[in-house]
Design a protein around this nucleic acid. Structure first.
Lengths: 353, 353
DNA sequence: CTGAAAGCGCTTACAG
DNA sequence: CTGAAAGCGCTTACAG
């Protein structure tokens, strides 16, 4: 026989059964519902499996059992400390439930996401986690037809259409904005990343500007700038901004942008917080240790990742019998050295002479 | 029938075949060897699949075909910009080969790694990529028995036992060390992360110290410190070091540590590079934009990730008929503002008075 | 180029 | 508590 063998040399459930002197069905029960197997039989099967170095074939098993033990996760990119941390925690916590994570990056592109969803469905995932709320009907429909549980992570919204776990990005930006207002700032500049493809960024920007309006602080449109999540580009954008305008504070869409702003200020010799206050959102790894350290809003990545893993596993087992999850985790303002009262910024104009 | 159905509502290959007026075997051929199907038949099948929203079940398919289309990847953690970037690129490139990445973190623990390998094998991976060269025989044996191709990423070594793609961490540290020596530094301190569980760190440390010895520069043992890959801890360690000793340069095991050292110097009022030179390894996202910018050794994460994806896919298809891969990708010294000649450091002692 | 049939490695009612 | 048998959704020689 020239037939291609898939598990060349590796023993299957039949070999384990023969060696243990039981039927394959009993070996299967040993793994899937051990309480239905007598203790003595269990021991023999365990030893037999160990002797042979048996490893289950979950793919074969999943053809009957409906569960593959695999959970999908789609992130925009892993090249983002927050998503990397989230994926790390999510994956670990899934491991504690005997699940494995199948991950893919959509690169902030919803057409790519459709292809990825298809590819994940081809691999029989038991559930899927997505970032944020911007998804195509096509992708969502493919999942709902197959009854695959979907969980939206990261951004909490009251009006979410799918179950979600996250912090409110609206609240996060409001905390940052209110902090700057409390310090007396009125000439505030805003740096946000693309709000078209990113609902987190959109919520943050809307919220920051709404807070300004609410408190009667006018915002000039040329103080609102676009900036990708890239420290180098943020530094360039901020350098140009600081040379042309005289903001007393800059509210940044996330910490990566804020880092760039701090470096720009440092390079220009603008003192933070005496001449300029800077806030971020996210509380990335470096932010606490920079000099000056960054005032920011902490987003609970670890807690989201853990809770998400627990939740998606529960959803996959209960299917539709679970109440819909909408968990809002708290975010906190972390006041550090990069913000101060506006009084300290009197010297600002001097540097321009 | 109360039987649990796995793909409730979703059409299978049989439905597609019926609608297209062909046999299931022909639909299967359409996907797996389209050239064996007549063009007209292809069109009808394609339309039928589209109409029904058919999605293949690769798990069922893999029972025969030996291929699951899934590649495993085990990293120590994703909470590391280099591994996150590597995973991101690897995953994307696998996507272009119609493969999906199954990723898990071993948290720098080799026992955990064994469990992960088992879990990945249960899911029928076509190949697996690991970080570095420190792996248990148990894990490697489970893979070799099943003939699963293994590829070691990140750290190139001549004496590698398994196929590998990476940069030489020995060379990386040598470049950094030689650069400091060329600038005239002799009082050099070293900060490296745990070398027991991390062959990259081990190679870097050995190499840096060997370079010193080669050039006849003595290194006092209290100038060699342990430090995890954590900017905050690095800052603390460096602060204490700088207050007690007077190194003219600090060679750091990676950029994360170097960032902490730069912040420590900044907080202490020590001028870089005038009073202190600092080097990193890795060229992380922030390093080019910091003030002062960091001199470091760039490791080609993107190229490793891409080449790794191409290679593991080729290996999985060719099995043992491929020559063993040992690709050494170049790393480059990037000289920036954080290093300078030792002459500039004359003022060093002043600050201690 | 296409179809009928066997079978991949498991799991699950069913019957004991 | 255990076994024999059917079957999960596909793929693959084999035969036409």
């Amino acid at each position: 026989m020239n037939r291609v063998r898939s598990r060349k040399g590796a023993p299957g459930i039949v070999e384990v059964a023969i060696r243990a002197g039981v039927s394959p069905a009993t070996v299967s029960r040993f793994y899937n519902s051990p309480d239905k197997v007598r203790a003595g039989t269990r021991l023999r099967i365990e030893q037999s499996a160990k002797d042979l170095g048996y490893i289950r074939d979950r793919m074969a098993g999943s053809m009957h059992s409906r569960f593959s033990g695999t959970i999908g996760f789609i992130v925009p990119t892993l090249n983002n400390a927050m998503f990397a941390e989230l994926a790390d925690t999510f994956s670990r916590q899934l491991g504690s439930h005997e699940r494995t994570m199948l991950i893919a990056c959509n690169n902030y592109d919803l057409d790519t996401e459709i292809d990825i969803v298809r590819s994940l469905l081809e691999r029989r995932i038991d559930g899927i986690a997505l970032i944020g709320h911007d998804h195509t009907d096509t992708a969502l429909h493919m999942l709902s037809v197959r009854d695959i549980p979907v969980l939206s992570l990261w951004n909490y919204r009251e009006d979410a259409k799918i179950p979600s776990i996250g912090a409110s990005n609206t609240q996060a930006a409001e905390l940052a904005a209110q902090h700057l207002l409390d310090l007396g700032h009125k000439r505030i500049a805003f740096l946000f990343s693309d709000t078209v493809i990113n609902d987190r960024s959109r919520d943050r920007k809307m919220s920051a500007l709404a807070t300004m309006k609410q408190q009667g602080v006018a915002v000039c449109s040329d103080m609102i700038l676009d900036c990708p999540y890239n420290t180098g580009i943020a530094k360039t954008v901020a350098t140009s901004l600081l040379q042309q305008k005289q903001p007393t504070a800059i509210l940044c869409g996330n910490d990566v942008i804020a880092h760039g702003v701090l470096y720009a200020a440092l390079a220009l010799g603008i003192k933070v917080p005496e001449q300029l206050s800077v806030t971020g959102i996210g509380d990335f790894a470096n932010s606490a240790d920079m000099v000056p350290s960054l005032t920011t809003v902490r987003l609970p990545a670890k807690r989201i990742g853990q809770l998400a893993a627990d939740t998606i596993v529960a959803m996959s087992m209960a299917r539709n019998q679970l109440p819909t999850t909408h968990s809002k985790l708290e975010c906190n303002l972390i006041v550090r050295e990069s913000t101060g009262t506006v009084n300290k910024t009197k010297q600002l104009d001097k540097r321009l002479k």
